[in-house]
C-alpha cells in the first residue's frame, strides 16, 4: 500500500480539525511573529553597543536566527505533536494506533500537520531577503540548493529530537518535560553563534545534541566565517547528520514501542 496518498488524506483531516479553532489559529501566527521579531530586536540592541558578537555582525546573526526559525517551522509542522505522545499513552488513546493495519509511527506522525507555523515562514523569508540585501549575499543556484538541503537536515535533526523525547514516554510515561529541560534551552542556545560559547558547549552541540548543524555550521559556509575547533567542511554535513540522527531516533521509538507492548502503561 502506498503511504503517501494516505499521508495527505490524514494530514488534510488534521488541518481541517485545526481550522475549527480559527481564533486560536490566527492568534498563534501573530504571536509567533511577534516573539521572533522581539528576539531580533534584542539582538539589535545588544549589537548596537558591541558591533559584533564573537566576530558576528547583527545581520549575520539575523541570518543565523532566520535559518533556525525556518527549519524549526518546518519541523513543528510535521513533528511537534510527538512532544505530547505521553498524554496519548496516559489516557489510553495511543492504543488506537495499534489496532489499525498501518505502521504506528506513520499513523501517529500523520495525525497532525501544524499549519500554524506560517508565522515562522513569514518571519524567516522577510529576514532572509532583508539580510541578503544588507550584506550582499550572492544567491547562486548551488547556494540555494545548499540552503534547502541544510533546511531538510535541520528538520530531521530537530524532528529526530522530538521523536526521541516522545520515545522516552514509552519508558517514563511522562516525557513532555524533557522538551522543556533539554530541547527548548538547546534551541535557544543555537539562536546565537556557537563560537561565543565555551568549547564544551560547542562539542555537545556538534556531537551529542547536534543542533549546531541546524543553523550555525551551515551559516559559516554561506557567510564565509571561521569555525574554531572544527574543520571547514563541517558546514556541509547537515543533511547527513540529519538522516543519521533521525534514523537513530526512529530506532529508539520503535524499541520503545516494543517495550510498551510488553509492559503496557
Amino acid at each position: 500500500m502506498s503511504y503517501l496518498p494516505l499521508y495527505f488524506k490524514l494530514v488534510g483531516a488534521g488541518v481541517r480539525a485545526q481550522l475549527q479553532y480559527r481564533f486560536a489559529f490566527f492568534m498563534r501566527i501573530i504571536g509567533l511573529i511577534t516573539a521572533y521579531a522581539g528576539m531580533a530586536a534584542t539582538m539589535w540592541v545588544m549589537l548596537y553597543r558591541f558591533d559584533a558578537l564573537g566576530g558576528w555582525t547583527f545581520y549575520e546573526m539575523l541570518f543565523l536566527l532566520a535559518l533556525a526559525v525556518v527549519s524549526w517551522g518546518c519541523c513543528i509542522t510535521v513533528f511537534f505533536h510527538f512532544k505530547s505522545l505521553d498524554t496519548y499513552i496516559v489516557n489510553g488513546t495511543f492504543d488506537r494506533f495499534l489496532v489499525r493495519p498501518i505502521h504506528p509511527f506513520f499513523h501517529f506522525m500523520s495525525m497532525k500537520f501544524d499549519i500554524g507555523a506560517v508565522g515562522q515562514f513569514i518571519f524567516s523569508i522577510v529576514v532572509f531577503l532583508w539580510v541578503s540585501m544588507a550584506i550582499d549575499i550572492d544567491w547562486s543556484v548551488w547556494k540555494v540548493l545548499f540552503l534547502l538541503s541544510t533546511i531538510i537536515g535541520g528538520v530531521l535533526i530537530q524532528g529526530g529530537m522530538l521523536v526521541i523525547i516522545s520515545a522516552l514516554a514509552f519508558w517514563t510515561t511522562k516525557s513532555e518535560q524533557f522538551y522543556w529541560v533539554a530541547m527548548y534551552p538547546a534551541r535557544n542556545l543555537t539562536n546565537y553563534p556557537l563560537v561565543i560559547y565555551p568549547k564544551l558547549v560547542q562539542m555537545i552541540t556538534a556531537f551529542i545534541v547536534p543542533f549546531g548543524f541546524v543553523n550555525y555550521f551551515p551559516s559559516t559556509v554561506i557567510l564565509g566565517k571561521e569555525t574554531p575547533y572544527f574543520p571547514d567542511f563541517v558546514g556541509f554535513l547537515s543533511p547527513l547528520v540529519g538522516v543519521v540522527f533521525f534514523l537513530l531516533a526512529y530506532w529508539l521509538w520503535m524499541s520503545g514501542l516494543s517495550r510498551y507492548k510488553s509492559t503496557g502503561s
Binding site: K9, A13, A17, Q20, H107
Partner: peptide, 16 residues
C-alpha cells in the same frame, strides 16, 4: 473535531 462522516472516510482509506 471533525464531522462524523469524515472519520468514516478516513477509516475507509486506512483499511482500504
Amino acid at each position: 473535531d471533525l464531522p462524523t462522516i469524515e472519520s468514516f472516510e478516513l477509516l475507509k482509506e486506512i483499511y482500504q
